[in-house]
């Protein structure tokens, strides 16, 4: 089915960078006439993970995506790193492009914790659109 319609995969978290990524991804999907696969994952190793959507915020995202009119699929895997989940989603859907939001992190922070973005770039075969802020209003 991925042959029929192109796919855009986006990693989403309920933060400014996540919303920026989603906005860019919606624009990309519209431009390409593509299906959107939204991945919101959690390592699931803590009792609280505010980046994992549940309840009302999840419903709002669902509504927002429905309103956009773009065919979408929402995936919420639990248990692995976001980088691994995104790479999986890209490979499985044969995505045309992956959209991610970049977190600003110091050089020391990168050294200690690594960079999810870097791991994604190395793992994924398709083009990656890495964004820092919402798209300029062009439509």
């Amino acid at each position: 089915m991925s042959q029929q319609q192109p796919v855009v995969v986006v990693g989403h978290v309920p933060t400014p960078r996540g919303r920026a990524a989603l906005a860019h991804a919606l624009a990309e999907a519209e431009r390409r006439g593509a299906r959107l696969v939204v991945v919101n994952s959690s390592r699931g190793d803590a009792l609280v993970d505010e980046e994992y959507l549940q309840g009302d915020p999840l419903r709002r995202l669902h509504d927002e995506l429905t309103v956009s009119g773009i065919p979408f699929e929402l995936r919420q895997p639990v248990g692995r790193d976001a980088a691994e989940e995104l790479a999986d989603a890209v490979e499985q859907t044969g995505a045309e492009v992956l959209v991610i939001g970049l977190r600003r992190r110091s050089a020391v922070g990168k050294l200690l914790l690594g960079s999810a973005a870097q791991r994604i770039l190395l793992a994924v075969d398709c083009p990656v659109l890495a964004v820092k802020g919402p798209p300029a209003i062009t439509t």
Binding site: D45, A46, V48, D49, G55, V78, G79
Partner: peptide, 8 residues
């Protein structure tokens, strides 16, 4: 338990 619980 794997996975977070919902915080309201």
């Amino acid at each position: 338990r794997r996975g977070p619980v919902q915080v309201i």
